[in-house]
């Protein structure tokens, strides 16, 4: 065991950035498992409609297609924000993030109105097993998106205050990763819940 040379301490500091990203990747793995469980539950309970309305009658193609389109676009704009980050263009970065947040808000708004319509039609979380599984799965995703919106807004404010520095860079990267992840989950929801539901 020799005395280490001075560079280790400095390396140690730099490592802290990559630690966060690695940790966040592992967190995404756990979140993935959460969604996997919810999908499994949905798969089991899909048919448990107690003779009430099924997905075919409840889901509106127009609505969920719009949601999908908006969320995919927001993923694209968050990608553009990351590009701006790497180019070091603060104004552009902020603008793209704002566009992403606005699109996210639109998505959440649409989802809330979709849920409201369903509840008005007498299809609520307590109606039957199928709807319980539907609302928990889609609702969990919706809550994730809402959380992401608050988070992204916080990051925007920090960029405005501090400009682009190492810390901000890391934060934008991580929130962007989160956003893409939610997009991927949505693609599964779109396929498994909505498309297979109306078919």
């Amino acid at each position: 065991m020799n005395q280490a040379i001075s560079k280790h301490t400095h390396e140690h500091e730099h490592h802290h950035d990559t630690f966060k990203l690695l940790g966040f990747w592992i967190f995404l793995v756990t979140d993935c498992i959460i969604f996997a469980c919810l999908f499994a539950v949905y798969a089991v309970l899909r048919g448990h409609t107690d003779g009430d309305l099924t997905g075919k009658e409840l889901f509106e193609i127009k609505g969920f297609t719009a949601e999908t389109f908006i969320l995919l676009t927001s993923s694209f704009t968050s990608g553009l924000a990351t590009l701006a980050l790497h180019k070091g263009k603060k104004a552009q970065l902020i603008n793209w993030l704002i566009v992403t947040v606005v699109l996210g808000l639109a998505f959440v708004g649409l989802e809330v109105s979709e849920f409201r319509t369903m509840v008005h039609e007498g299809a609520s979380i307590s109606t039957n097993g199928f709807l319980s599984a539907f609302f928990t799965l889609v609702g969990t995703h919706g809550l994730h998106v809402s959380f992401g919106l608050i988070w992204m807004t916080a990051v925007i404010l920090q960029i405005r205050r501090h400009g682009i520095n190492e810390k901000v860079k890391e934060k934008v990267t991580i929130v962007g990763l989160y956003w893409h992840f939610l997009d991927v989950v949505w693609i599964f929801i779109y396929t498994v819940v909505y498309l297979m539901g109306v078919m």
């Binding site: 793995v29 756990t30 979140d31 498992i33 959460i34 469980c37 919810l38 539950v41 089991v44 309970l45 448990h48 107690d50 979380i125 307590s126 109606t127 039957n128 097993g129 319980s132 599984a133 609302f135 928990t136």
Partner: peptide
């Protein structure tokens, strides 16, 4: 790999109890 499953399971049980959902109930859930 294990704890997220616990999180989901307990959350779903709570959804059943709190919002009257039917995820693990005998009649409409499993």
């Amino acid at each position: 790999f294990a704890f997220p499953v616990l999180t989901v399971t307990l959350a779903l049980l709570f959804v059943d109890r709190y919002l009257g959902a039917h995820i693990f109930t005998a009649d409409s859930g499993n």
